[in-house]
Amino acid sequence: MLAEIPIMGTVFTLEFEGDGRAQSESSALVAEVTNELERIDRTFSTYRTNSEVSHFRRHEHGTHSESFDEVFALCELARELSDGFFDPWAVPGGYDPSGLVKGWAGERALALLIDAGAERAVVNAGGDIAIHSAEPINIGVRHPREADRLCAVVQSNTAVATSGLYERGCHIVNPLGAELGAYAATVVGAPLYLADALATAVVAGGEQVLAKIAQQRQFRGLLVTVDGVLRAIPGTMVTVIQT
């Protein structure tokens, strides 16, 4: 079953397999995931003036939902893991967890598919991918300059995220106020929201952040500099596609 859900300014693709599931059950599951993603969007969207995050940004403090508190704590964790280069508090307009929420929503969607008994499931949250599979799958890495070409292939059965300056609505800033460190970055490893946040951090801080990631067994990654040089943590790629 393959389903696409347009949400959060992008498209979420669900791909899942389980034995003997009826078409109607699969459709109900897609509807359940859609509802959850819409709930997340209503809570966290900075484009919705009445979202919980928008209220928080306007300093209209009330009681927070469980999801809000969880994402807030995960943003702090991601900031710590990235040596401060992923910083949702450094964004103009105040706290903006968008860079983590898409991956977090991807993990939530995957969890719903696994709970429903999917033996193999892939959630593609607009190019950031959460995977549940016994075998690793091959994932093409988008060429940073040309949207319809690949520059490398990585393998994972957990998660892969890519951030790049080519993205629509890209607002990556270096919290130190210096120039950005990379043109694009891909991080392999779960959970997806940390991979996504770390990929954003590598774009902000460059090789220094990639080296920090290399110290953690959980993640692998690569970056492409503004000059087009591809640099990778050993073991990240299964192949490089040369032009």
Binding site: V11, I137, I139, G140, L150
Partner: peptide
């Protein structure tokens, strides 16, 4: 790209939009 990869099955692309 698929021709170039020659049978290395790439099921999904990171960093790309849904069209692929």
């Amino acid at each position: 790209e698929a021709l170039k990869a020659q049978g290395l099955p790439i099921g999904i692309v990171t960093g790309a939009t849904y069209t692929s």
